[in-house]
Design a protein around this nucleic acid. Structure first.
Lengths: 224, 224
DNA sequence: AACATAGCCCTACGCCGTAAACTCGTCAAG
DNA sequence: CTTGACGAGTTTACGGCGTAGGGCTATGTT
């Protein structure tokens, strides 16, 4: 006897499948359209079934965002760091244009998924290979992240803000094992700032002055 | 006979009072805490009473955001445009630090309230007085807006995206009457870009190159 | 005195996220 | 062949959400 329709066409659910559906739904109808009932409907399943594969709704949204960030394609980076960063930025932009809901969501959440960490790693490697000091690279990530790349809300926020008992350096290194440049930065960032994290005020003024300088240089340019 | 408690201590509601309560509530418990029932509770009133003074919930959130933007204090701007912009940016930052929920919300919404328009107007005046061409000022607003000032998602988006029948220039001018520099820009922006609005791609690359240039100049600096 | 209006309340509807208990097919151990 | 555990999915229920629609009352106007 043949399998019933239900049995045949219901491939088992999975985190992957849930997140993919969430991204597609957000692409079609905006982030607000993401709800468990709606997602279940989209997947041919009751809403609560989704909880087998996902912690809660935030986990879905964070996961969808990280999936989008993961779409940013990475070729072998050019030798010239500016060219490499430019290529990465344009790749990021084209992805964000495919998923217009994503940037706004990224800004809202401070959660940093693996794909995002991977991109930060890539940026740091490009910069360090281009001759940036750790500090300079750190500031560069802040400036690039928020506006240009559409990700980052620095990953060390927790250790920085909490100011409670900080994990020992080697534990930090282990947590960031697959991301050596990020780990290097994480350790370096603990030595200076009073709280061991980023000095937000400094990063803000760094970016501000960078922009003001750049604008001054282009002040009189009239071409569009 | 004395007034009942209800009659005496219930000053009439007003849009002002609702928005102020919304800002305070968001400051205390985050934007998500803003709900009509909760707001009513906060104001000593049933939820539905709020609808007499406000269109809907989005109107409340947009209004709260604009109220926050309106908190940015503006002294007489310095002669030096860089100093003036720096002062404005720092003022904006200090306000945003008082209302940490605001920047993320601003990014989400493309609604531009009067306070926000007023700030854009101020920025444009500073820039034009500093010798910027209209075009250069336009690009500068884009670069400054999203990261540094925490507002702007350009105000001409509608006319740019819609690409339907555009209102005649004089109508645009009238809509922006209290904001002469904005109006000037709005008219200028219609002459060039294929769609009569901003060329998003250009703005993106402009900001990108500005940042890359600036970073290159600071590449080797080691101080934090 | 008659009525209009403003300001607020009440009820109800269809959404939402999620806790808890259920069903049911699969499969290994006895 | 029975039994029992287990995992995936379902069902039900709860409290909260935005808001449409209508009702009540106090005040002001004529």
């Amino acid at each position: 006897m043949v399998d019933s329709v239900e049995t045949r066409e219901r491939r088992p659910l999975s985190r992957e499948r849930v997140l993919r559906a969430a991204v597609e739904l957000a692409d079609r109808e905006g982030v607000e359209a993401i709800s468990l009932r709606r997602l279940g409907q989209e997947l041919g399943v009751e809403a609560m079934a989704i909880y087998r594969h996902v912690r809660d709704k935030d986990d879905i949204v964070d996961g969808a965002v990280d999936a989008v960030v993961g779409e940013i394609e990475v070729g072998e980076p050019s030798e010239d760091w500016q060219a490499a960063m430019r290529a990465l930025a344009m790749a990021a932009r084209s992805v964000m244009l495919r998923h217009r809901w994503a940037p706004a969501v990224i800004v809202t959440r401070q959660n940093v998924g693996p794909a995002m960490l991977g991109q930060i790693e890539r940026v740091l490697q490009i910069l360090r290979r281009g001759g940036f000091t750790i500090d300079a690279a750190h500031h560069a990530v802040h400036v690039l992240g928020s506006r240009i790349l559409g990700f980052t809300q620095d990953p060390f926020n927790d250790s920085a803000q909490a100011s409670g008992p900080q994990p020992p350096p080697d534990e930090v290194v282990r947590a960031f094992a697959p991301y050596p440049a990020v780990a290097e930065l994480a350790v370096a960032a603990r030595h200076d700032g009073a709280l061991g994290g980023c000095d937000d005020d400094f990063e803000f003024e760094f970016g501000l002055d960078l922009v003001l300088d750049g604008l001054d240089r282009r002040r009189a340019s009239a071409s569009d």
